[in-house]
Amino acid sequence: MATLEIRDLHVAVEDKEILRGVNLTVRAGETHAIMGPNGSGKSTLAYAIAGHPKYDVTGGEVLLDGENVLDMTVDERARAGVFLAMQYPVEVPGVSVSNFLRTAVTAVRGEAPKLRDFSKEMRGAMAELQIDPAFAQRNLNEGFSGGEKKRHEILQLEMLKPKVAVLDETDSGLDIDALKVVSEGVNRFREGGETGVLLITHYTRILRYVKPDFVHVFASGRVVEEGGPELAELLESEGYEKFTKAGASA
């Protein structure tokens, strides 16, 4: 059973404080949605959890089952079970999707899967996400459309089977069919009730397929409001305005 606990997290980018005391706990089986205006620090939170070198943690902690992931390197965090589906997945020239996936799976599982088993597993996962098998040979994210990149993030999620997944605007740039396919992938990941999901989004669209248990409103680098799924509907109809004010005056 996994628990991700974010306690009073402060993060700065280039000496500018972006996160100003974030508190949030994601338990196994729970899905938390984070919604908030552009620039409020949602991606900063996601990157800080994953350990991106650009983001300096100036205070607080992030615990995965009681262990402070902030003490770990980026790859240690991933192997410990933290996964970040990125808002803008990076193109890596000359590294094929299949080679990348196999190296990642080997690192996370601690042993190399047999080539044949692995390739079967990968093909299966790709088929479920309606990814053309030809992508396996292509360079990682290179020349992929926005939607194709997002599908591949979920492909990695499904193959790496982390304890907690942070999905940073995985829904943006997806047409309705792709949104369904990707949502089904996230739901397969949630299925057993042993994993946690922190889902960052601007829209309730994805929340109709991936039902959240909690919704948090993010503004000016912190959580300013919390509620159930109904809060998402309210945000969509009324906007963030009153919360951004609350955030700014807090």
Binding site: G51, A78, R79, F83, L84
Partner: peptide, 8 residues
């Protein structure tokens, strides 16, 4: 970062 974020 991207590769390391996948455990590599």
């Amino acid at each position: 970062f991207y590769l390391q974020a996948r455990g590599i």
